[in-house]
Design a protein around this nucleic acid. Sequence first.
DNA 1: TTGACTTATATGTCTAGACATATAATCGTG
DNA 2: CACGATTATATGTCTAGACATATAAGTCAA
Lengths: 242, 242
Amino acid sequence: MSLATDTTDQLTLYKRIRADIENRILTGEWPPGHRIPFEHELVARYGCSRMTVNKALSELAQADLIERRRRAGSFVRRPQHQSAVLKIADMRAEITALGRAYGYELIGRKLRAATAADRDRLGVKKAAKVVAITCRHSADNVPFAVEDRLIDLASVPDAATADFSREPPGSWLLHHVPWTEAEHTISAIVADDRTAEALDIAVGAPCLVIDRYTWRSARTITAVRLLYPGDSHRLVARFKGG
Amino acid sequence: MSLATDTTDQLTLYKRIRADIENRILTGEWPPGHRIPFEHELVARYGCSRMTVNKALSELAQADLIERRRRAGSFVRRPQHQSAVLKIADMRAEITALGRAYGYELIGRKLRAATAADRDRLGVKKAAKVVAITCRHSADNVPFAVEDRLIDLASVPDAATADFSREPPGSWLLHHVPWTEAEHTISAIVADDRTAEALDIAVGAPCLVIDRYTWRSARTITAVRLLYPGDSHRLVARFKGG
DNA sequence: TTGACTTATATGTCTAGACATATAATCGTG
DNA sequence: CACGATTATATGTCTAGACATATAAGTCAA
């Protein structure tokens, strides 16, 4: 089997080298732990300069496919933990992406000094002002999810005056506070009276719960709880890895 | 404000350049759409060769923080969709990572020709042989999740003879069929009699359901349904992005 | 056998060039 | 004005070197 003739693509050299090695790893020809040829060997094999193979190997290392160790060489990494990329677009995008009509309804909005429960939810210690928002998202006029959100005004003062009667707080935040980090907790509950009514489902029906806690460089921004009807299978995540 | 004096870290030059630009983007100083200085400008500013700033910019482009356009320049990208990295380790790792004792119990294992339902679950059309496995994972002797799995023997013939009485099929597969792709569907149900008994919870209690469908280069491998007690908040996902 | 020192070596970073290539901007023409 | 041809330019890739640095492996003494 030749090295690089299976795909006669118009690839640049370093991309071909990278693809060659990637294929060997993905097909299992070079299993985890296997030592990749040294850079100087690849240089000889492909007849190019070391910078070129270095670029290919560096990208493979960045993708966690190989591990590079000084003096020792480069090695195929063992499959990492399966990690799924869960796309949680903002609700409007999520629903319109499904080809359904997006509907939004503000149920409640309150500006208040943080209660003990608020502080706990946001993970802050000192007293602060917060906005509490409850709203509902619907798809084709059917309830899709209810949202219960807390925004820390110390981090996002503009949220005090923002008009959430038309624009969902998630979309608003996405445009005003980019590049955040977040932590998600996914769980299931059975609907209580209030939830059942909001989602138009039966009391005792299963609900999917996503708690998302968002911050930005150690500053809390918002905590949100999303409730979905449990039978809807909407959190689809694809992942690559092994 | 100086360019690179805030962090006097022992970083290599290209990493410092990358960090400088990244900071400017993350702080909002350079908002989406902003044009990054041209390579030759950065060369002048940092007093280095073009390959060095090119490496910094290439990595930022790989990380989707900037977009590079020939002749036009490099531009700060608008925040992508929030995407969460959902780590779904194999169950043993997941439980031991929590510092709890892992327990495994095979409940049933059947080798059979695929039924219509099996084919549907696996997403294959032609008849095939499958292994159906039901098992339970426990943490500190408390039921943690029940697993209901189907393995396509056409793709993984070894699974026919593998001993799943000691080793969970997930771990086994992870070691025998690396580098797969998968799709997850997350939903919620209420426990029926069988589920309630298996998880040692009340009938009607909420359960979190993860359906994972795994393939490898267009070949179906396995379909698994995991049932967790709904109150356990174990699917924690952190994400970065905006 | 163990620990400290030395050496060899593979990777990490960097340079000062080069040519390729896509494309924004300009210029000319109908 | 519209449209096609030309040009300028920023990025993309590549080279043939260089020195730095971490570390596996070998060496030697206690």
